[in-house]
Design a protein around this nucleic acid. Structure first.
Length: 319
RNA sequence: GGCGCCGUGGCCGAGUGGUUAGGCAGGGGCCUGCAAAGCCCCCUACUCCGGUUCGAAUCCGGACGGCGCCU
């Protein structure tokens, strides 16, 4: 019922779930048992110098198993679903050529889904015009922006319950710069690449337990030197580009370092922001994951969870 | 015991006769290239009892509770 293990398009084991559910450790164990390498589907852990605040795999953890996609970008660089999927495919291909097996681990739902359901190949959009247009669009009132988008791409507007500024701006810029509607590209544009079949495992936690883990992790990150990490980032790039993606908690930590708020207040804000994010993820993983996804109770010990993942079917050349 | 002030949804907090305050917390949801982002929805209360009024969270009386002062 499953493809042969050496099949180049064999499904990739994907360990996903909201933040602080223990994906890292489970992924490591799975990789260790299968001769695997980790491909990280995380939009923030990708940045160098932000490992503490993003709870990225530590150096020690990375020495257990080779990692791809962790701490390899300069803060402030652009890293979106498109770039991720291109890179991830390359990483996975290289891993297989080495006779090893990729294990996808991450909480950025869109990245994971874009692997299975590839985005369309974006036509070249003149960067300068694009930048200028974006500037203009984000200066506009949200209602007007939504209105323009509605006119330029009624189909898209009809499909979405509401055009928030971000999506409206994209619809406008794609329509204007490419000459075709975004909805057209989405439906008829060429795929950026072949889909990667995934065997998805979702780590889940009851709300109160999840909340508790997030609180504990916030304290641990502060303990581990989050403050120093922020100071280093500021020294390295004073333009504040590292804050562009609004990484959770970083602003609060910066304010704490400036003495503008107490450490405790900073911790509270970190928890609040992280929980809000976790809730969005919980919703995402509740609905935006294939029906075949296996849901695992993340309260179980990592070793057991890894067993469950491994036991769910062949996932490596060792089978 | 007397006098005064107060009593709004989980919390904070407006509102002084007739529309939904708002914020925070909590919950549900959306999502096709900024996704740790962007966005939507829900949670409709006025301590209790009587009265005035067409109509009271809003006025009057009482009860209860809290706070303060006095004795």
């Amino acid at each position: 019922m499953t493809r042969p293990d050496h099949d180049p398009v064999a499904a990739v084991t994907a360990i996903v779930g909201p933040t602080a559910t223990g994906k890292t450790e489970v992924g490591l164990r799975v990789a260790e048992r299968t001769g695997g390498e980790i491909v990280s589907a995380d939009s923030r852990q990708a940045f160098r110098g932000m490992e503490i605040g993003t709870a990225a795999p530590t150096r020690a953890e990375r020495s257990r198993v080779p990692h791809h996609g962790v701490a390899f970008l300069a803060p402030g660089e652009r890293y979106g679903a498109g770039r991720f999927t291109r890179l991830a495919r390359d990483w996975m291909a290289a891993i297989r050529e080495r006779g090893r097996v990729p294990v996808l681990v991450g909480g950025t739902g869109l990245f994971v889904r874009a692997l299975e359901r590839p985005l369309f190949r974006e036509p070249p959009l003149d960067p300068l015009r694009r930048r200028r247009l974006e500037e203009w669009l984000y200066g506009a009132a949200p209602d007007r922006l939504a209105d323009w988008a509605r006119r330029l791409d009624p189909e898209l507007a009809g499909r979405l319950p509401r055009l928030d500024p971000q999506r409206a701006a994209r619809a406008v810029e794609v329509a204007l710069l490419s000459g075709r509607r975004l909805s057209w590209w989405q439906a008829h544009g060429p795929q950026a690449a072949a889909p990667v079949p995934l065997r998805v495992f979702v780590l889940e936690l009851p709300g109160d337990v999840h909340r508790d883990r997030i609180e504990r992790r916030a304290g641990a990150a502060l303990e581990a030197g989050w403050g120093a990490e922020v100071q280093a980032l500021r020294a390295a790039c004073p333009d504040g580009a590292w804050l562009a993606g609004r990484p959770l908690g970083y602003r609060a930590v910066a304010e704490w370092m400036d003495g503008r708020i107490s450490r405790d207040e900073a911790r509270r804000r970190i928890v609040r922001e992280t929980w809000a994010y976790a809730r969005r993820q919980r919703t995402w993983f509740r609905h935006q994951v294939p029906d075949s996804a296996v849901r695992l109770d993340a309260r179980r010990p990592a070793a057991e969870l890894a067993e469950a993942v491994l036991g769910a079917g062949p996932s490596g050349p060792a089978a």
